[in-house]
Write a protein that binds this DNA or RNA. Structure first.
Length: 213
DNA sequence: ATATCGATTATCT
DNA sequence: GATAATCGATATG
């Protein structure tokens, strides 16, 4: 009898994140976000991200310089920058570039793999059909809620270190096709091509399910 | 299927 | 006091 095999997920290393946000964003597609707690393990594949440049990007939270809120972006790479927005939602970013440069990547959508029941409970939605899965992690606020991500809990954590409970890993998966588009929901620098998606993946936010466009 | 709108609060001017 | 890297509900074709 062959023992049941779980696909092994290896954490990404610091140098992965110590690069330009565009590069990190593109290469994060297909990687896996992991939440580990005592009795839970949540995993989901990254299918949509946006790059925010440390310099010369008016849409970035770092544009007006360092504050208490955005300090993590100015710190070492590979750490979680969590912000609270519209009085309702948390969003997850990872810091990029060497300390002192404020680049980052926003996580916009994931494809759930493990822990779907837990995610559904955290989101307060029922998952009856295949398409209901999109309600879990398709959108930056949604994925944060599904993973129980808050600023108090996760801002500043090291996403290369599994013992932090929130980390990013790889299992060898390579996206077949990547598409680059303008970023969503911003008013400044709204036409820069800095949004990276796995082409055709149904969990990408804004994707209409059941329509062929 | 697309458009519009209200909710709700940390953060900065 | 104004703003915001969103979401979900409602309205309309």
């Amino acid at each position: 009898m062959r023992p049941p095999r779980t696909t092994s997920i290896r954490p990404l290393t610091r140098d992965f994140f110590e690069r330009k946000p565009r590069r990190v964003a593109r290469e994060l597609l297909g990687k896996i976000l992991v939440r580990e707690e005592k009795h839970n393990r949540l995993t989901a594949r990254i299918v949509e991200v946006e790059a925010y440049l440390g310099a010369n990007d008016p849409a970035a939270h770092s544009a007006a310089g360092q504050t208490l809120r955005n300090a993590v972006l100015f710190g070492p790479p590979g750490h979680a920058y969590i912000y609270f927005i519209y009085g309702n939602h948390y969003c997850l970013n990872v810091s990029c570039e060497p300390a002192g440069q404020a680049g980052g990547v926003l996580f916009r959508a994931l494809e759930p793999i493990e822990g779907i029941e837990v995610m559904a409970r955290a989101r307060g939605v029922a998952v009856a059909t295949e398409r209901d899965l999109r309600k879990l992690t398709s959108g930056p606020g949604r994925l944060a809620e599904a993973f129980g991500i808050t600023r108090a809990r996760d801002n500043g954590v090291d996403l290369t270190w599994p013992r932090s409970g929130l980390w990013i890993g790889q299992d060898g998966f390579k996206p077949r096709s990547i598409r680059i588009t303008p970023r969503i929901g911003i008013t400044k620098a709204a036409d820069e091509l800095l949004r990276y998606i796995i082409d055709g993946n149904p969990f990408v936010s804004g994707t209409k399910l059941g329509s062929k466009s």
